[in-house]
Nucleic acid binder design. Sequence first.
DNA 1: GGATAGATTTTCT
DNA 2: GAAAATCTATCCG
Length: 198
Amino acid sequence: MLQKDFYARFDTRSLARELLGCVLVHETPEGTTSGIIVETEAYLCDDPACHAFNRRTTRTEVMYGEPGLAYVYQIYGMYFCFNVVSAPAGTGEAVLIRALEPLEGIALMRERRSAGANTARTFKTKELCNGPGKLVQAMGIHKSQTFHDLVKPPLYINEKVSGEVEVVVSKRIGIAEGKGHELLYRYFIKGNVNVSRP
DNA sequence: GGATAGATTTTCT
DNA sequence: GAAAATCTATCCG
């Protein structure tokens, strides 16, 4: 399991890159789900797209906390996004986890995703976690886990299983022009089929 | 296969 | 009252 020093060691963009290949794990009463992190985005304090850009508020308070905390927020009324708080306490930065490659508990992920769908349908394995809102649903992560310290169960991250990975850098997804649209703060594993947008 | 509209609620102005 | 770090169903080719 990754410890505090890992989250504190890197600046936000380096952490976003380092998290690729690591394994996000969530232990719940229904079972354990886990997946390899294959896509991330960095949000810096001097970045208009960052929630903590304007000022320190109730919602963004956790982003100013110590690195390694979880930040879960609701987006577009019905979905949630999971972030890892980065940068020293007092600096409002975080890494958005955008996609996972399902590892453990795939049946449970399918169950949770189907329960969230309007009509009965079967999800392919690569459709379970290939987007920020999707992985939160599949992993059973809840908004109340904001402020959870990711160095202990039930929600934590394991170190890379298989050596270094080939990383591709790109513009972020869903950022409007004039809001840091052109910044190359998105990182994903080359050729991985679970990435939200190749 | 790709494009598009609609769902729905918290947060801040 | 508007905007938001999205996803799915449904249309069309």
